[in-house]
Amino acid sequence: MNEEIKLIWQKFFNWVSGNGPRPENEVIPPEPPPDLPFTQKPKDKYTRFHEATLKERYNQWLEIHGLHIFSLIYSGLSVLTCIVIVCLLLATVAELPPFGDEKNPANNEVIRRYVEHGGHETGAQNIVAGLILDYRAFDTFGESAVLFTAAVSVLMILGVSRRNNIEESSPDLNESGQNFLERAPPVNFHEIRQDDSILRAVASLSIPAILLMGCVVVINGHLTPGGGFSGGAILSTALILCANAFGFERVHKFFNERTFIISSSTALMIYALSKGYSFFTGANHFHSIIPKGTIGNILSGGLILPLNICVGLIVAGTLYGFYALFSRGDI
C-alpha cells in the first residue's frame, strides 16, 4: 500500500517537475529520490551555483545600497500592519450584527422581494441564478468581461509573444543571454503526449460522463445549484482530460486559438446583445418580448438559460485556454 502511494506521488511529482510521464518505469522509478519534493531537488551543479550566486549577489546588493535594514524594516512593518489589521478587524467583527440572526440589516426588503417575487419575475427556481442573471445582471456581465480580459491578457503574455518571437526572434534579447526560453526549441506535440493506456481507457469512459455532467449543470442552472460558471469549469476539465490522455493535437483539431477566440467572442457577444436588449427595454419601460415560462420547467427563466449556456461556453473555452497556454504556451 505504502509503495503504491509512493508510486502515485512519484508520478505526480514527475509531472509537476516537468519530467513528463514515465510509462517505462512502472515498477520502481530509479531517480530522483521520492521524498524530496521538486523545489528541494538536488540540482545540477550549474543551477545550484547560479542560484547561490543570485542570492549572494542579492544580499551584497542589499548591503551596498544600505537596503538590508530597509528590507528588515519592511518585513517587520508588514507583519505589524497585518497584525494590526487582523486585530482591528476582529474588534470590528465583534461589533457586527450577530451571525445567523434573522433581524440583521442585510435581511431587508430587498431580499424579501428577491425571494417572494423572484419566482414569477425572473422565472427561475434557483433564486441565486435569477439574482445574478436578471436582477443584478450588470455585475455578472462585468464578471464575464473580467474573465474575457484575463483570457486575452494571458493569451497576449504567454501565447502571442512566443509566436512572435519564433517568427521574428528579437536579437537584443538573445544577445544578452537573458531569454533562455526563446532559444529553447518550440514544444512539439509528441513531447507532451502521454502513452498511458490506463489513462486513455479511463478518459474515454469518463470524458462523455464529465461532458454530460457539465451540460446538466449548465442547462439546469436556473433550477438547481450550479450554472454557467461551475458547469463551464466542469466542461473545461473534460477538455483538459482529453488533452492529457490523447495529446494536445487531438484537441487542437477542433479547438485551437482561432476557435477559442471566435467561440468566446461570439458567446460574449450574444450575452452582451441579449443583456443589452433587456437593459434597454427595462430602462425605457418598453415591453420585452422574452417569455418568462413557468417556474420549474426546463424552458423557464427567460434569458437565464441561454445566458447560462453562453457563460458556460466562455468559461469552458477560457479555462481550457489557460491550461493550454500555461502548459505549452499555445492553444
Binding site: E109, V110, R113, Y114, E121, D134, Y135, R136, A137, F138, D139, S278, F279, T281, G282, A283, S288
Partner: peptide, 13 residues
C-alpha cells in the same frame, strides 16, 4: 438614474 434591467432601484443595478 438609469435602471439596468426591468427592476427599479434597490433591486437592480
Amino acid at each position: 438614474n438609469f435602471p439596468m434591467g426591468h427592476f427599479p432601484a434597490p433591486w437592480g443595478n
